[in-house]
């Protein structure tokens, strides 16, 4: 079936872990936008949620770091973080090993990916799932892009991954919803945590909505690091969704910097 949904959303741990410290007005509006995203995804009656994330050394480390990895298991656990710290209880999320294998097999015709039959979700996936499938009743297929430990995959490879995912999703009979999750500008877990470059974010989101390959790939990591922080490397997840959306027009449903969440909180989707 053709891809039924493509969107992006933020995943910072403070979104759930430091909720009580945030300004209630933008926080609740952000939560409402996340709820609307859940409703939109459910309306497409998906068989699986493919979530493209940027995990944070929960499963992958510099002893054997894949640029891209795809989960291939029938269930996953999380969160790896202390549940009280993250504000999310321990959970088991369903997967679909067979579907994963078919998607991976197709993707690998053009993009090399590692696969993982074991995966402990950290906040990078646990936070989106908390909002999008809180009953953990929708099979999840996790995909990780290394956005933490350079050298990182060049941006055109992130786009190519998205193209490969679209081709793979269109080729299977299941209805696939795709969500990318990452920060835009942010300096997470550093002394600069809370700094957000809103202008940079809005320009990036403008390009993301246009879905234009050339302008989205016109960033280099050194400039991203200087202006958007090391968290800005996670634009790869957004770009992968753009590659999958194949030129569709995007819409930002919510964007607002929430410093205690350490990110410009975002919910956006493409009109497929």
């Amino acid at each position: 079936m053709p891809l039924v949904y493509a969107g992006v959303a933020s995943h910072a741990p403070g979104i759930t872990g430091r909720a009580e410290l945030a300004d209630p007005e933008p926080r609740d509006a952000f939560y409402a936008a996340y709820q609307a995203m859940r409703d939109a995804i459910e309306a497409t009656e998906p068989d699986a949620l493919v979530i493209v994330a940027a995990e944070h050394f929960a499963n992958f480390f510099m002893n054997n770091m894949p640029s891209f990895a795809v989960g291939m298991a029938d269930s996953y656990t999380g969160p790896i973080e202390d549940p009280e710290w993250l504000g999310i209880d321990k959970f088991e999320a369903p997967g679909n090993r067979d579907l994963s294998q078919r998607l991976i097999t197709e993707v690998m015709n053009t993009v090399d990916v590692a696969y993982a039959e074991e995966w402990k979700f950290d906040h990078g996936i646990a936070v989106p799932l908390h909002f999008l499938t809180p009953r953990f009743d929708l099979p999840v297929i996790p995909i990780n892009i290394n956005c933490q430990g350079p050298p990182l995959a060049p941006l055109p490879r992130a786009w190519a991954l998205g193209e490969a995912l679209r081709r793979a999703a269109d080729a299977v009979p299941e209805r696939i919803a795709l969500v990318g999750t990452g920060g835009i500008s942010h300096w997470p877990a550093t002394p600069d945590s809370g700094k957000i470059n809103e202008e940079w974010d809005r320009e990036f989101l403008r390009r993301w909505c246009d879905g234009d390959r050339e302008s989205l790939l016109d960033y280099d990591d050194q400039a991203v690091y200087a202006e958007a922080g090391q968290g800005g490397f996670e634009i790869r997840t957004f770009i992968t969704v753009s590659g999958a959306a194949a030129g569709a027009q995007g819409e930002v449903h919510f964007y607002h910097p929430i410093p205690i969440f350490a990110v410009g909180c975002t919910v956006a989707s493409y009109r497929l």
């Binding site: 741990p13 933490q148 997470p188 877990a189 002394p191 945590s193």
Partner: peptide
Amino acid sequence: VNGQILMHFAALHQIAWADYLQLMR
């Protein structure tokens, strides 16, 4: 040490978020 690793270590020691940021500064 990458902050994404370090923040969990700080949480293990029950260090509050604001204190964690200040300790790095």
